[in-house]
Computed example of a mutant assay.
Amino acid sequence: MINVLMCTYNGEKYIGQQLDSIMAQTYRDFRLYIRDDGSTDATMRIVNEYAERFPEKVKVVSGASHLGYPDCFWDVLEKCESADYYAFSDQDDVWDEHKLEYAAEKMGDAGLVASDGGAGDGRPLLYIHDYDNCDGELGLISRHCLGDVAVLDEMNILFYTYASGFCMVINNALRDLLLRQNLVGKAMYHDELCIWTAYFHGKILYDDRNLTKYRRHEATYTEYGNGVGTLISNWLRREIFGDEFLLKCRLIRTFLSLKEIRPSEKRVCRSWLLLSGGRMNFARYFKRLCWGHRLRPSAGGEVALRIMFLMGRGAVGK
């Protein structure tokens, strides 16, 4: 059984296409849990129509009117019934009809199917896949290839989110480990936390098939799709002079405080704590600034990161 978990908010324009793509999955042993976060448009009318048409498949989850992201995903992950696997879903993408089938196959091929046909040998497991970046009308912008997970190490997952939540499926062992952390209210992004937890305590499985049409709306496409100048402008606005990097540093420090899922090696914990800022003296500042390991895949992203180290961004009190 796979539980598909969707959070909605004012998504009336595209949600029908995503619901249709989920209902059309070749893998039929699934349930779709939908948690609305206080929509004021026709989103819930559309969701309720699908719940009436597919009462055995679509389950509406009640909750606080507006938790926001990422807490809405932690809430629905906790409130859904147990399953073998859990697939996160955006409200406005379109899935390949074989997505759940391929996820179940890949996880089974990894040797994580129990003798009774259920899933699990106790290891937290994260499945990720490639996807297509598309415009509002699903016209192809680019194909996004994540690349072999063998290139991942303890440092290059720190300041770069390798995969997004909409292309993730987790197993029950990972779900249980995450839920024991009481994550609502801690501002922990579900995609990043799944990557970190699976890397240090389980296994990440990569599928190079493009299984989601990721809809990038006009504002998003404009922000990220207009060349080097736009990227530099965004780094300046969002990270160097904005709050995005500060939030990331706080997120890292929160992760290190979650004893069950933080890295077990003290060396890694010390490195992550140093790079996330914390309380600084001159020696720590210099060591962070001159860190010898590359931390982001793009040269521009790495330069932006080093500028923030130079400015002392992320340090407690800054």
Rank of each mutant, 00 (worst) to 15 (best):
L5Y: 10
C7E: 00
T8R: 03
N10T: 09
S21C: 10
R28N: 05
R28V: 13
R35S: 10
G38T: 12
S39F: 05
D41K: 10
A42M: 15
K57E: 01
V58K: 03
S62H: 08
G63Q: 06
A64L: 13
S65W: 04
H66N: 14
G68P: 03
P70Q: 09
D75E: 04
V76Q: 05
C80D: 00
Y85I: 07
Y86G: 01
D93Q: 06
V94F: 09
E97D: 15
H98W: 05
H98T: 14
E105K: 12
V113L: 04
G118I: 02
A119N: 03
G122K: 11
G122R: 05
D132Y: 13
N133K: 10
D135Y: 08
L140S: 13
I141S: 02
R143A: 00
V151D: 02
V151Q: 14
M155I: 07
N156T: 07
L158A: 06
G165Y: 03
R180Q: 09
K186G: 01
A187H: 13
M188Q: 10
C194G: 06
T197S: 04
F200W: 12
I204Y: 03
D207N: 09
D208C: 10
T222I: 08
G229S: 04
I232A: 11
E239F: 14
F241W: 11
F241H: 14
K248E: 02
I252W: 09
T254V: 13
S257R: 10
E265G: 12
R267V: 12
C269E: 01
L273G: 02
G277Y: 08
G277A: 04
R279K: 13
R279W: 06
N281E: 09
N281G: 15
R284L: 08
F286L: 15
G292H: 05
G292W: 12
G292T: 11
S298R: 11
A304R: 04
L305E: 00
G312Y: 09
G317S: 09
